[in-house]
Design a protein around this nucleic acid. Sequence first.
DNA 1: AACTATACGGAGGGTCCCTCCGTTTGTCAA
DNA 2: TTGACAAACGGAGGGACCCTCCGTATAGTT
Lengths: 196, 196
Amino acid sequence: MSTTEALAETLVTRPKRADARRNYEKVLAAAREAFAEGGESTALEEIARRAGVGIGTLYRHFPNRQALLEALYVNEVDEVCRSAAELDGGDPWEELNGWFEGLMGYFATKRALASELLNYLDHDAPLFQTCRVSLYAAGEPLLKRAQEAGAARADVEFSEVMQMVFAIAKVPTNDPGQTERMLRIALDGLRYRPEA
Amino acid sequence: MSTTEALAETLVTRPKRADARRNYEKVLAAAREAFAEGGESTALEEIARRAGVGIGTLYRHFPNRQALLEALYVNEVDEVCRSAAELDGGDPWEELNGWFEGLMGYFATKRALASELLNYLDHDAPLFQTCRVSLYAAGEPLLKRAQEAGAARADVEFSEVMQMVFAIAKVPTNDPGQTERMLRIALDGLRYRPEA
DNA sequence: AACTATACGGAGGGTCCCTCCGTTTGTCAA
DNA sequence: TTGACAAACGGAGGGACCCTCCGTATAGTT
């Protein structure tokens, strides 16, 4: 079990009774499915219906809409973090670039969820902070390695780059190539060297 | 009267009777005020109340929430475009940079409106398209001049840069300096020269 | 002053988020 | 197995919000 999953259990307080655990999973699965279909902002009633549980049950497990989205988010973050761990040994700049591209591609398929979550994104939510920590732990070494190799400028923080990439991922567009181009421009900013 | 203002009159079909015109202005003013206060997503009922008109009156002038936001947006866009027209003769790179910074600073004070609008931002809404045209007409010459002066790379489209900047403006953060740093990184991407 | 097109205002319908609470069910000890 | 109870279920309904409809009021005209 990964850090963020363990964290999810602690903070979201997963239920204990067998039927409760079952329903928790059913709701999460239904939500994942609903959001994967890109259905703009799916109503919680609809998710409960899909899961075959009452709306009250849904709210027993997730105190509000944001909590449900966050639980979903924790899952997704874990997956992305794992993908960073798999990288190593290649060209630092290519790895960094590749990881961010993968990140974008990943969010592209989950645009509905991502876009709604990014709206909630404020620096106060504790669960979000810890997710960021996981994400940073996964991605920061990639930046650092690129910086040490002289492939990326040294005067930028990973957090800044991360937020920039998220911002671009959030741009609504029908043309996925355009998002990719924006990302490339922004990341090229990492290679620009201010004349000292 | 500017292009976009004229367009607003055409598309939003400004009312004609004296009391109607008065109420139109009152609603717009109330909305501007409400959004300037940063009140997350102000209810239309609240705006009608502020304006001292019934909710029905508000909807007579603005068929839905988005229409009201768009009308507000048209005003703001005009102002930003005018600021670009005032620039000329200085260093092309500085002017381009300065304009984008001004754009960001401007949206920083209207975050609630901007953020909600950027969510609606899809390439279908005709009014939005024309606003983009105005914005491009104002900003594109700045980029082109910078490119011709060799201060910005030639292989980027203004539309891409614009969307990138909007994306960054949209990032919710308490620290305005951070937004500024992200913008600087992204814009430095314009100065990066791919090794040919 | 009377008339009419125009505009006003708010009741109410629909949707969605969420709460409350009576009912059901899993779990465990006897 | 059975009885008891904490835990969980489900859905009615409250509240907020967006928007529609339509009876009432009024600006502008004759």
